[in-house]
Each structure stands twice: as structure tokens, then as C-alpha cells.
Amino acid sequence: MKTEQEIKEVLRQWVLTKSKKVTDSELKFDTHLLETRILSSLHVMELILEVEKMKGTRFNLKNIKPGVFNSIDTIYSSFFGSPA
């Protein structure tokens, strides 16, 4: 089972691979991903699949709010931080 830091790092690497708008040194766990347009709406579908894959479960997408994807910290706390 991965630790919080390990999961956040997997997510950080995913963002770096998908977005050309941020460098390794710039991207922190609390960097705002949407306001800065590091990620767009179009990335989010892929990100949801990635998180589902990591968790091994499908989400009820109706409950997903935009704020969830603000940063790696918020993605972690929304999907991994507490039992679903």
C-alpha cells in the first residue's frame, strides 16, 4: 500500500507527463492546477481514470465537484484521504 507522499508523487508525475505548462521544479503538491491552466477540463477525464485505476474502484461522478481538482493536495484528500 502506497503512503500519502508516494500517491501524491504518482499524481505529480502524471500531471508533469500530461501538461507542458509546468516544470518539475515548479510543480508542488499545493500548486493550483486549474486556475493556472496547468490542467484543462480535457485532462480531467483521463485523471479520473488514473485515480480510479489507483484506487481500483469506479466513482459516482455526479458527486465530483470542480474544487476536487484544484491541486494534488485536494485530489489526494478527496479520493484517498478518507474512506469512500
Binding site: 491552466r37 484543462s40 477540463s41 480531467v44 477525464m45 459516482n60 461522478l61 455526479k62 470542480p66
Partner: peptide, 10 residues
């Protein structure tokens, strides 16, 4: 099948 697309305002 559910939709995985989300649209954020900009």
C-alpha cells in the same frame, strides 16, 4: 455508462 467529462468555467 456514466460520463467522465467535467467542464470548468474559464
Amino acid at each position: 455508462y456514466p460520463d467522465r467529462k467535467l467542464i470548468f468555467p474559464r
